[in-house]
Computed example of a mutant assay.
Amino acid sequence: MHKMKMSPTEGLVMLLLLSTAEARNCSPCICEYLEETWTWKVDCSSLGLIKIPPLVSAHIRILYLQNNRLTTVRPGTLDILRNVKELNMSNNPWNCDCSILYLKQWLEDSHPASLANATCATPAHLRTKSLSQLSGNELEGCRKLLPIKCLDFLWRDLILILMAILVLIFASCILHYSKKLVSQVSRKQQSCEVPLLPWHELETQKIRKRL
């Protein structure tokens, strides 16, 4: 078994914890200090728990929570755990609504092997299904979040559409103004060229009369 590496300061702290281990209040769970790895074993199994009690340390290596009445886990409850190697959450009546997402995601990140051992008790259509088999669409209550997200996307799309319309209007105005300017320039050129023809003819007639 590999020993966990710790700094001298952490070792001193753990020795102090070891000296006061018997005085540590782990109720209602049973806490055992593992000298070989300088970590803890916390046994909270078969106590009829409806919620996970405060965890004694971040250095928990073994955690037993099986055979209780746990239905969900409050977000953040398990964030303190960084060194769990053995975890058992089986035989709990997990309620697989949207609130179970925290536990599912935490297990996926920290202890994937336990996903298959945690099975749903409710709702009825998910009974006996493990957390590893659940998808977001199967979790009741999660669909209620979708309209909010869709609304966010709707506002974003409306803003983009509005900006596109404004750009098209601006481009149309520029094009219209350009055509109008070209037309005005063309008319001015024509007005300057037309009088030249009669003047040229008059001069020709005057010369002919003199001759």
Results as ranks from 00 to 15, higher is better:
Met1Gln: 07
Met6Ser: 10
Thr9Ser: 12
Thr9Pro: 02
Thr9Leu: 14
Glu10Arg: 11
Gly11Asn: 10
Leu12Arg: 07
Met14Val: 09
Leu15Arg: 03
Leu17Pro: 00
Glu22Ser: 13
Glu22Gln: 13
Arg24Gln: 06
Arg24Glu: 04
Arg24Trp: 00
Asn25Phe: 02
Cys26Asn: 02
Cys26Asp: 08
Ile30Pro: 01
Glu32Tyr: 06
Tyr33Arg: 10
Leu34Met: 07
Glu36Pro: 02
Trp38Arg: 09
Trp38Ser: 05
Trp38Phe: 09
Lys41Trp: 10
Val42Tyr: 01
Ser45Asn: 05
Leu49Met: 02
Ile52Cys: 02
Pro53His: 01
Pro53Glu: 03
Pro54Ala: 05
Leu55Pro: 01
Ser57Arg: 06
Ser57Thr: 03
Tyr64Ala: 14
Leu65Gln: 09
Leu70Arg: 07
Leu70Asn: 07
Thr71Pro: 01
Thr72Gln: 11
Thr72Arg: 08
Pro75Val: 03
Leu78Lys: 02
Asp79Asn: 13
Asn83Tyr: 14
Asn83Lys: 09
Lys85Leu: 12
Lys85Glu: 15
Asn88Leu: 03
Ser90Phe: 01
Asn92Tyr: 09
Asn92Cys: 10
Asn92Arg: 04
Pro93Asn: 12
Trp94His: 05
Trp94Gly: 07
Asn95Trp: 07
Asp97Tyr: 02
Asp97Phe: 02
Cys98Tyr: 05
Tyr102Asp: 01
Leu103Gly: 07
Gln105Gly: 04
Gln105Asn: 14
Gln105Val: 08
Trp106Pro: 04
Glu108Lys: 13
Asp109Gln: 15
Ser110Thr: 10
His111Pro: 03
Pro112Trp: 01
Ala113Leu: 12
Leu115Arg: 07
Asn117Cys: 08
Thr128Lys: 09
Leu131Cys: 00
Gln133Gly: 08
Gln133Ser: 14
Leu134Trp: 01
Gly136Phe: 10
Asn137Lys: 11
Gly141Ser: 03
Cys142Arg: 05
Cys142Val: 06
Pro147Lys: 04
Leu154Gln: 12
Arg156Val: 08
Ala164Gln: 05
Leu166Trp: 05
Leu168His: 09
Ala171Pro: 00
Ser178Val: 11
Lys179His: 13
Lys180Ile: 06
Val182Ala: 15
Ser183Glu: 15
Gln184Asn: 12
Lys188Phe: 10
Gln190Ser: 08
Glu193Pro: 00
Val194Cys: 03
Pro198Glu: 01
Trp199Asp: 09
His200Tyr: 10
Glu203Ala: 10
